[in-house]
Design a protein around this nucleic acid. Sequence first.
DNA 1: AGATAAATGAAAGAGTTCTTCCACTTAGTC
DNA 2: GACTAAGTGGAAGAACTCTTTCATTTATCT
Lengths: 184, 184
Amino acid sequence: MTLRADARDNRDRIVDAAEQLYAISGVTTPMSEIARRAGVGAATLSRRFPSRESLMDAVFARQLGWWMSAVDAAADAEDAWSALLTLLEETCVQQAHDGVCADLVVRSFLQGASFDVEKAAVSAQVERIIGRAQRDGKASTDVSWDDVVLLIEANAGAAGLTTADPEARARRLVHHFARSFAAH
Amino acid sequence: MTLRADARDNRDRIVDAAEQLYAISGVTTPMSEIARRAGVGAATLSRRFPSRESLMDAVFARQLGWWMSAVDAAADAEDAWSALLTLLEETCVQQAHDGVCADLVVRSFLQGASFDVEKAAVSAQVERIIGRAQRDGKASTDVSWDDVVLLIEANAGAAGLTTADPEARARRLVHHFARSFAAH
DNA sequence: AGATAAATGAAAGAGTTCTTCCACTTAGTC
DNA sequence: GACTAAGTGGAAGAACTCTTTCATTTATCT
C-alpha cells in the first residue's frame, strides 16, 4: 500500500514538525499544533498517525537511522577504545542538541517491540566494540551494553531539562562515564 | 494567615496523594485524581493550590527536607570521601524508589527561584564535603557541586523511565560517577 | 484531456480537565 | 450551647484536545 506523492510529502513535513516541537515542548505537544506547523489539517495528521505513539515511532525511526550509521562507523575503526568514546560523545551531544527527550528514546527504543531488530543490531555492534576495547586492555571488564543504555537514558533524561549549555552538560556526562569505563 | 486545623489536615493529605501519584503517573496526573485520592473535593484542591506548579513545589519541599538532613549528616562524618559516596547512593536510590521525576527536581529546585535559600545551603555543605575529600587525596580535583547536580539530573531523568529494577539502575549510575570522582 | 480513486481541510462532536459558584457544614470563640 | 467566620464538595461551565464526517480538491492512469 503505497502513498500518493503529495501524501508522502505531507507525511514528511509532519514528522519534521513533530521532531522540532518535541525538542521544544516535549512529546505532549498538542497534535493540532504539530499539524499547524506542518501546514496540514488536523484531520490529515490523525489519519496518518492514529495515535501519538505511532508519530513518536516515526520521529524516532529517523534518529535511529542516524545513530545506526554512527555505530557502524565506530565498529569499523582501528582503535576500538577511542572509537567507543567518540561514539558515546557524538551520540550524547547529538541528543543534547536535537533535544531528544527521554520519552521518545524509551517508549520507542527501550520499551516497545517496534524496533527489536534495530535494537539487536545496534547492541551487537556496540558489544563487539566494547569487547575489542577490553581485549586491548583499554576498557574495564565490567562494562557492557547495559551501561551504554544507562548513559543514553541518563543523557536523554537530562537533555529534556533546560540549561544554559546542554552540549557542555552532555560532554561532562560522557566524561564521567568514560573515566569509569576505562581500565583501572 | 494561618489555616484552620481541618484545612491543614486536608492540605497534608493532598500533598501525600500528589507525592504518591507523581511517582506512579508523573506530574501530569489530573488534579481531580489527586483530589480523589486525598479524599477531598476538586474545589478544595484548586483553592489550596491554584496552579499545578504550586502543588509541585509543596511536594518537592518535603523531599528537599529529607535530602537536607542527609546532606547535613554526611557533612558531619569523619571520612568525607566515603560519606560523599554514601550520600550520593542514598540520594539516587531514594529518587529511584520514590520515583521522583525530573520535572519535579528541575522545576522546583534547579530552575525556579522558590528554593534559592535551600539550594545555597545544600550546595555549600556538599562543596565542603567534596573539598575535604579532595584534601584527603581521595576525590579528583576536578569534581564540583555541578557534577553532583549533573548526577542528580541524570538519575532523576532515568528514574522516570520504567525499568525492571530502578534501584539497581540508580546504584549502577552512582557506581560510574564514583569511579570517575575518585582521584586517579 | 477525462475518468477515477486518493487525499485534503473546515467544522462538528465527543471526551477530558480545570476553575468557579453557592448552599451547606464545621471548627474556633465567647 | 450559640455565634461567626472559615472551609467544603457537588455541579455548572469554560477551555482544550482529539477524532470523524463530508464536500471539495488533486494526483495518477489511460
